[in-house]
């Protein structure tokens, strides 16, 4: 079932890559120089690393029927904290630790609003989305804080054969995959997302689960923020991680995880994040102004929606059944 769900995103990615090959025959070429691997594919992965990181956290949040709009702002705050600390003479490691601790606190705050106060996730995280950039600017006093620190630069721009940013993202992907398999987090997240009432009656502590995933996504956003600011050795409170929440949500949705919660696919999210980044690169290679990428993203969203809609034909005759039930029936039929 999950393989079938990943078929469309996989095909889309292959098509995009082939398109690139047509325009730039050397697209798949990789070369090793000074022990660093270079090539278009590496670039795609490196530029997509922050989005992938956040999308991984977002996948779990969305699986619990939630959403986190504040990740972009949290990423900006992480960069701002780290850079101001280093600019004030602090060490890079303490700077990063400080940033991540603050992000965890912000995650606790979102989780508190959603799971304890019971505010709809989209609204609860809107608060931090709005105020967060203000906080980031407060930290940087409205300036772009530039720093010069070799250790810090490694996070976003360093190489260990592959760019370190890629390695971090893949490590987190592996970590999440392992954590959700080796602990019961994955199963409990899905059960809370699929049927909250049944989960309550089975004694699942939904509150803890939901709180955990919001803290996790905030940490992911924090690491992504560090990557973004490290890559340019500066903290830009206004533009760091701008709209990354939308790209992350998009990656999750393209990867086949429904915004209605429930079953999720980390592989799908990986595919989704790579598709988005490849799309951006493709637009570059075929010589369209990069800003126009947005039009292609819109087209992708619309196509994905059409494919995920409870079949286009029944939708057009206004089927009264909720999409979820129909999907179930369909899956049964496929088996």
């Amino acid at each position: 079932m999950s393989n079938r769900r990943l078929l469309w995103p996989a095909l889309a990615l292959v098509a995009l890559l082939l398109l690139n090959l047509v325009f730039t025959p050397s697209f798949f070429a990789l070369r090793l120089q000074d022990g660093h691997l270079f090539g278009s594919l590496v670039d795609i992965l490196r530029n997509g690393a922050p989005t992938l990181l956040i999308a991984l956290g977002m996948t779990l949040v969305i699986a619990t029927r939630g959403i986190d709009l504040s990740v972009g702002a949290v990423a900006a705050i992480a960069g701002a904290v780290a850079c101001t600390h280093i600019a004030d003479g602090g060490g890079p490691v303490t700077a990063m630790a400080l940033a991540l601790v603050l992000c965890a606190v912000l995650g606790l705050w979102n989780g508190f609003l959603v799971s304890v106060v019971g505010i709809q996730p989209i609204i609860a995280t809107l608060v931090l989305m709005t105020a967060g950039r203000g906080i980031a600017m407060l930290l940087t006093e409205g300036q772009i804080v530039t720093i010069d620190d070799d250790v810090y630069r490694q996070v976003g721009a360093g190489f260990l054969v592959l760019p370190i940013a890629i390695l971090i993202s893949l490590a987190v992907l592996g970590g999440v995959a392992l954590a959700t398999r080796r602990t019961a987090l994955g199963m409990l997240v899905e059960s809370v997302g699929v049927n909250p009432e049944a989960s309550r009656l089975a004694g699942v502590r939904a509150r803890t689960i939901i709180w955990t995933v919001y803290v996790f996504v905030a940490l992911c956003a924090g690491v992504a923020g560090l990557m973004i600011s490290s890559n340019v050795s500066a903290a830009d409170a206004n533009n760091a991680g701008l709209w990354i929440e939308l790209d992350a949500i998009l990656a999750v949705v393209i990867g086949g995880t429904s915004l209605a919660g429930g079953r999720y696919s980390l592989t799908g999210t990986l595919l989704g994040a790579v598709i988005i980044q490849t799309l951006t690169t493709t637009v570059y290679t075929i010589g369209v102004p990069p800003e126009v990428t947005l039009v292609f993203k819109a087209v992708v969203v619309i196509i994905v929606c059409l494919l995920q809609a409870p079949r286009v034909a029944p939708a057009l005759r206004r089927a009264p059944a909720p999409p979820k039930a129909e999907q179930e029936v369909e899956e049964v039929a496929v088996r």
Partner: peptide
């Protein structure tokens, strides 16, 4: 199509911004 308003208008947002450029 029963697309969530969030996603549908997100597509609209991308489309409109992209068309500007």
């Amino acid at each position: 199509l029963r697309v969530q308003p969030f996603i549908a208008t997100l597509a609209g947002m991308f489309l409109a911004r992209g068309l500007c450029f």
